[in-house]
Design a protein around this nucleic acid. Structure first.
Lengths: 150, 150
DNA sequence: ATAAATGCAAAAGATTTGCCGCGGC
DNA sequence: GCCGCGGCAAATCTTTTGCATTTAT
């Protein structure tokens, strides 16, 4: 369960589990199919009478992204949205330029993906594909440091 | 050439070609290998003694994206960056979580891409893949309206 | 001539930060 | 007691907007 995993991660890194952190994570668990922005999370908590300050919401979300619980998304609206990062099943997003609706697309080969989308009636104009990770340069340096750390 | 294409597009849509629009497009042409944000463009123009107001820079960039001359990018920094959209060759980006460097990656099948990156020493943590286009719903509606328009 | 585009400054949003006080360890 | 954490308000930063003036066609 996510909450236990969070507790464990926090403990490992000498951070503390707090009611606010639990509440924020729960918002994402309760809205698995949404792509919530920080302000959304704040509003949801607020309207549920759970007072968590905006600053804390922002700080907690950042923490959750850092620990891999959330994935940071951007749909070109000028705000960031987030979703629970289920490590197992990657997926991508199709954003309609007309109505703005967001469809979730399973990961497959690009070619297959394109063919399938076409068959389903999607017309795509451009791709925005980003991969986050560690580049070869940094990787070398990190390896050398690995024994020293931890 | 991009400038002529812009002139043509503007004329077709009953917009006007202006020195400012030309200047902004030129900044991107002169910095093809960069991912410039709006403020960067403003600074570049400003330091070259070409005074174009910030508002115009923002408005022009928006226009250029709309017309497909620029592609809007986001690297999670809280600002948008843009690059000349060369329609022919799609590419993606690899962002190093450690040093922040951005590598450009050619488009291939996902699987092939992953294998190659791994061979080159990249370690990837997560993908952010977005496709922009028109969804089947909107597509239906658009088709029906097509004869009336234009 | 006239509608569109620019410039300027103000406004709007989202996100971050400084600082103080509280509470877990 | 120390240090991480949360709350609050102020600050910051990017992007947008209103309005008067200029300019392309």
């Amino acid at each position: 369960m996510y909450l236990d995993a969070l507790k464990k991660t926090l403990k490992d890194k000498k951070y503390r589990m707090t009611p606010q952190r639990e509440l924020v994570l729960k918002v994402f668990m309760d809205n698995e199919d949404e792509h919530l922005g920080a302000e959304d999370v704040y509003r949801i908590l607020f309207s549920n009478k759970h007072s968590v300050s905006k600053a804390t919401v922002y700080r907690t979300i950042e923490l959750l992204v850092e620990f891999g619980f959330l994935r940071k998304l951007d749909f070109g609206e000028g705000i960031y949205r987030y979703e629970l990062a289920k490590k197992n099943k990657q997926h991508h997003h199709f954003i309609c330029k007309n109505c703005g609706k967001i469809y979730e697309i399973e990961e497959k080969h690009l070619k297959t993906l394109k063919r399938e989308l076409k068959n389903q009636g999607f017309v795509f104009e451009n791709f925005d594909f980003k991969i986050y990770g560690i580049c070869p340069n940094c990787n070398k340096k990190t390896k050398k440091r690995k024994e020293k750390k931890k």
